[in-house]
Design a protein around this nucleic acid. Structure first.
Lengths: 186, 186
DNA sequence: ATCTGAAGACATCAGCTGATGACATGACTC
DNA sequence: GAGTCATGTCATCAGCTGATGTCTTCAGAT
């Protein structure tokens, strides 16, 4: 974080975005208020409207920031899976994960989530399956990603005791095996 | 549906519950209003407070009604999986599925969802794994259920094109193989 | 030093939501 | 048929939420 001038719109924008990513990840869109975002960011919440246009557009920006410059990740590559899993365990499953599990009214939100998930997760898997000569590569990829999303969100839901407590190493092995289920048995 | 007397509290209760299950399934708790529930049920929405105590308690009732008298289902038993999948494809993943993927404020809602999911889905799988002599049977069961929930919710989210269009037969085979991933490779 | 526009703070609005209390109406008992 | 309680209806409230418009304040240019 830069030095902190008294007035710095770029910095305020960034603080709002960061707080939004955190809160949207923790509670989702509906249960997060613009006032909470402003409070956590230490920035007046009305600036959300000024800099982003509104709460909805901030959510879109949060989804785009969520993956950042991270490269697409093949969930069946153990190293890539480890990196992705580490990130999610540290920061939680971001805003796009939630849209993958509940439809939203705004088509822009929908499209952004679908695009992000597709580019980062579905497409690499689809390629993987295509190279392997499997039928329905795209469907298999979407299935695996949806399952992965379910597991990541399930960890923090309070509905699964042991899943919430499982450590990274153990989780990595189990998730790897689970996702391996979309491949034909050897 | 019974004959339809002019005044029948039991019937009104039931209509409200049915509408609630549908709407909570379609849009979740936050995006469903008591007025919508009343409208769909053809019943005055204030009766929700009278008969159930409030929207939250109605959600709890909806979760309990969701599984009805359905017996616990071992997701790794192909016949049971088919039955469960058919139900979800017809009626959608109910209120308890949503709680499995996002924490709720009310502890009663949390506990009800956890209990329902555990009794109906996690416990049978845990037994299955225990009988198979696998390590971490409970964790594996929770993982499989979370993945299943992710796939079911992902179908209706609009984020996965092919998953949304996949037919029951195709889906059954793929989900069966996916969940088989929690078993050691033969 | 002054001016000016950007950046931020503040008060406030309109809409929605769940809930409540008062009232009306019907059904059943005696 | 009078009385009584369950059932249903209606108006309304208080709180929250996102958004807007106005005013203040500061930084940098001239």
């Amino acid at each position: 974080m830069t030095p902190a001038r008294r007035r710095d719109s770029a910095r305020s924008r960034e603080l709002l975005l960061q707080a939004a990513v955190e809160l949207f990840t923790e509670r989702g869109f509906d249960r997060t208020t613009t006032r909470e975002i402003g409070e956590r960011a230490g920035v007046d919440p009305t600036l959300i409207a000024r800099y982003y246009g509104g709460k909805t557009q901030l959510y879109v920006a949060a989804m785009e920031a969520e993956f950042g410059s991270a490269p697409p990740a093949d969930l069946l590559d153990e190293d890539r899976l480890r990196m992705l899993l580490d990130g999610v365990l540290r920061r939680g499953p971001g805003p796009a994960y939630r849209v993958a599990v509940q439809p939203y009214d705004d088509p822009v939100v929908q499209d952004t989530a679908r695009t992000q998930l597709h580019d980062r997760l579905v497409a690499p898997l689809t390629d993987h399956f295509t190279r392997s000569g499997l039928d329905r590569p795209r469907l298999r990829a979407e299935l695996a990603v949806a399952a992965f999303v379910g597991v990541m969100l399930g960890r923090g839901s309070g509905a699964f005791d042991q899943l919430a407590e499982a450590g990274p190493d153990e989780l990595l092995l189990l998730v790897r095996d689970l996702l391996g289920g979309v491949l034909p048995r050897s």
